[in-house]
Design a protein around this nucleic acid. Structure first.
Length: 716
DNA sequence: AATCCGTCTATTTTT
DNA sequence: TAGACGGATT
């Protein structure tokens, strides 16, 4: 009974062994959060405080859910079958399948991923003849998802102007279309489940009584609907064990509401708040820097990370002249580290936005340094995979117009726009799906479209009694996909991916309890799959800071630490946005175990223009004693010690057209202004008494100043 | 049906 | 700068 809690530190132990009451666990970065969560479940079960059936554990990603399950099976000798451990969406799916009638859904409803949803919306707009300039599909998609995430059906959305009224009407049309086609989007999974529980008293009572302990991971990332969903499920007296870190809330832009943590504490009358502040990951200097930065945020729930691992190395700061120099510095440094025996896979290269990876990748590539970029296209999102799945979706559900349109003419089989128009007319008249409207279409169009239906029917009978992987093979073969990519001289990779899809199906069969076609399709939508096949293992890891959340590395390079990039310019004027940027910085820093590099470029190419940025305020927020500058600090350069990069002169920095010298000042020159402080000249125009320069003062903004009026003193 | 070309846009992203 | 997209061209 005791070995579970062995080696837990006091707060961890306290959290794991809390009585059956609501609890809020503030788990700092690297504080053993997953361990506490899983040990809590194991402890509850082992102490007979709950049966496995009484546990509901929710995560955001499949990866986290899988991790939890793996650890749990290692801790407990029981099988985890009866346990509900999964993502919000996965659990909702499970619930809706079990109660599809009560939820007014077909048993084999399909799940639309974001791309499917977007194409469904585009199709809707076209069918309704809506001007997609006025109502861009993407905006509408966001609008619809935002409404659903607030728990609002069209009738409940307040619309005070024509524009909003129209959007709400389109939202309603979209709902009708989805219902007609038997498909649900991601947000719908949650909303539909919420409504099911809310309106159906027997179903609600059943689950409220069943789940005695509800555990939530990454609570700071929950949105409004998820919070209400939890509240509803816990309404029967369950204890909610919420684990989260308000300082790592970095997904507000997609609906996450950190306020849920405070609301939870208040509305659930939480008396057990446990802080996990001992960090087992990073050295002291790194934690001190993270603490110092995050202290600049007001309204925190409050937490201070500490370690007994010792201060470790200082944080290295490098100010490069250009983005190219920055990349070269990083590559040189990594090469040196690797020569000293570091493992490339333990080196991470982080950046705020994806666009920044290009220069870095180029430098790594030229140096022959293996690297891996996270966050590309995922397996089930590749077009050839989507095509193959499109056929399978149509086989499972003839009402799925999205799937129909995706594959009806791919590979091309002479079904053009006019045939489809005729078909769409027929479908509209008959109030049916495209597939079922086919018999109603005559003439040439009817023939070509009819042939397609025959193909699907033929596939269906050919697949009868086959296993999933065999079905995939049949589909790839008979649909003509294989022949198509075989004929395409760039189709080699796609064919390989289709072969991989057969493997994926085989894996699914061996792992799934009920490997039906429909379940496989659900799996494909809900778990889009690893970003890429594990490329060569010994590679430097490149990713955005967002993608790095939850990961850790011996060495971290954090690049592009410039005002406008990080914090990003779109967030700089909004206090909330700036605070989220700061939390992002906090996440970035706490990824490093032993060594942390911060780098920036004084000028960089962005959107085809050279930009001159000031050093990020976040670097300034780190106490001096924690850092070691590898280059002279801006503003501290004397005449003699201009920093010369290791290579000869840096490549000519591309100049903006207005960069000619004006009154002794030039573009790129750092200047001081009495009121605005330090800035960098980014453009200049006019001459003589008209001369004006544009100066980027960072947090004070970018200003045009007339040299005849403003006093600007060159710095450094 | 495939290709070409001009236009537009440019945080972060899981399910 | 570069990529994605849509419309027009062949």
């Amino acid at each position: 009974m005791s070995h579970l809690t062995e080696n837990l530190n006091p707060p961890q132990f306290a959290a794991v062994t809390l009585p059956a009451q609501h609890a809020l666990i503030l788990a700092g970065a690297g504080s053993g959060k997953t361990r506490v969560l899983t040990t809590r479940i194991a402890w509850l079960i082992q102490s007979s405080l709950v049966s496995p059936q009484g546990v509901l554990a929710v995560t955001f990603t499949n990866k986290a859910a899988k991790e939890m399950l793996t650890r749990l099976t290692a801790m407990l000798p029981i099988n985890t079958r009866g346990m509900w451990i999964g993502t919000f969406h996965g659990l909702c799916n499970r619930l809706l399948r079990a109660h599809h009638r009560d939820a007014n859904l077909p048993q084999l409803f399909q799940i639309l991923d974001s791309a499917d949803q977007l194409s469904a919306i585009k199709r809707l707009l076209k069918a309704l003849n809506v001007d997609d300039e006025k109502f861009p599909p993407r905006d509408l998609q966001h609008f619809i998802n935002a409404c659903k995430e607030e728990g609002l059906r069209p009738a409940a959305v307040e619309a005070w102007d024509d524009f909003t009224r129209k959007r709400v009407a389109l939202y309603q049309e979209y709902e009708n279309q989805c219902q007609r086609e038997g498909v649900v989007d991601f947000a719908e999974l949650l909303l539909r489940t919420y409504e099911l529980l809310e309106r159906n008293e027997p179903v609600r009572a059943h689950y409220q009584q069943r789940f005695r302990h509800i555990l939530v991971d990454e609570f700071q990332d929950t949105n409004t609907l998820q919070y209400r969903w939890l509240k509803l499920l816990a309404g029967g007296g369950a204890s909610v064990f919420a684990v989260g870190d308000d300082d790592q809330s970095i997904y507000a832009f997609r609906g996450a509401n950190v306020g849920n943590m405070r609301d939870f504490e208040r509305e659930f009358h939480v008396e057990n708040v446990v802080r996990l502040e001992q960090n087992y990951r990073s050295h002291g200097n790194i934690l001190d820097a993270a603490n110092a930065i995050i202290k600049h945020n007001p309204d925190r729930l409050g937490k201070n990370l500490w370690t007994d691992a010792g201060a470790g190395e200082p944080i290295r700061v490098y100010s490069a002249l250009t983005d190219l120099d920055e990349a070269r510095f990083i590559v040189d440094e990594i090469r040196a580290l690797v020569n000293e025996g570091a493992s490339r896979s333990e080196v991470a290269l982080l950046y705020r936005s994806n666009a920044q990876s290009r220069v870095l990748e180029h430098a790594l590539f030229s140096a022959g340094m293996p690297y891996r970029v996270y966050g590309g296209l995922r397996f089930f999102e590749r077009q050839e995979i989507k095509h193959a799945l499109g056929y399978m979706r149509l086989m499972a559900n003839p009402d799925d117009d999205t799937a129909f349109l995706r594959v009806v003419n791919f590979p091309t089989r002479g079904i053009g726009a006019r045939s489809l128009e005729a078909l769409q007319d027929a479908a509209r008249t008959g109030g049916s799906s495209l597939y079922l409207a086919v018999p109603a279409v005559g003439g040439k169009a009817g023939a070509s479209v009819g042939a397609f239906v025959s193909l699907i029917e033929k596939l269906k009978s050919a697949c009868e009694g086959l296993s999933l992987p065999e079905m995939v093979e049949q589909v790839v073969e008979q649909s003509g996909l294989r022949a198509h990519y075989l004929a395409d001289r760039e189709g080699e990779d796609r064919l390989a991916n289709l072969a991989e899809l057969v493997n994926a199906a085989a894996n699914f069969v061996s792992e799934s309890e009920e490997p039906t076609l429909s379940n496989f399709l659900t799996h494909a939508s809900l778990e889009a799959g690893e970003h890429q096949a594990e490329a060569s293992t010994e590679a430097v890891q490149l990713m955005t800071v967002h993608a790095a959340k939850g990961l850790e590395f011996d060495v971290v390079f954090l690049s592009g630490l410039e005002e406008g990039l990080f914090p990003h310019e779109n967030s700089i004027t909004d206090p909330k946005g700036l605070q989220e940027e700061r939390r992002l910085m906090y996440v970035a820093i706490t990824r490093a175990r032993q060594r942390l590099y911060l780098s920036l470029a004084q000028s960089r190419m962005l959107h085809g223009q050279t930009r001159y940025n000031l050093i990020s305020r976040f670097v300034d927020e780190i106490p001096e004693g924690l850092t070691k500058w590898l280059t002279p600090k801006r503003g501290e350069m004397g005449f003699g010690d201009y920093y010369a990069p290791a290579e000869p002169a840096p490549r000519a920095v591309p100049r903006a057209s207005t960069s000619r010298a004006v009154e002794g000042l030039r573009v790129g020159q750092a200047v001081e202004h009495a009121k605005f402080g330090q800035g960098v000249i980014v453009a200049a125009e006019g001459g003589g008494s008209d001369a004006r320069v544009q100066v980027n003062f960072g947090r004070q903004g970018v200003k045009w100043l007339a040299l005849s009026i403003a006093k600007l003193t060159p710095v450094a």
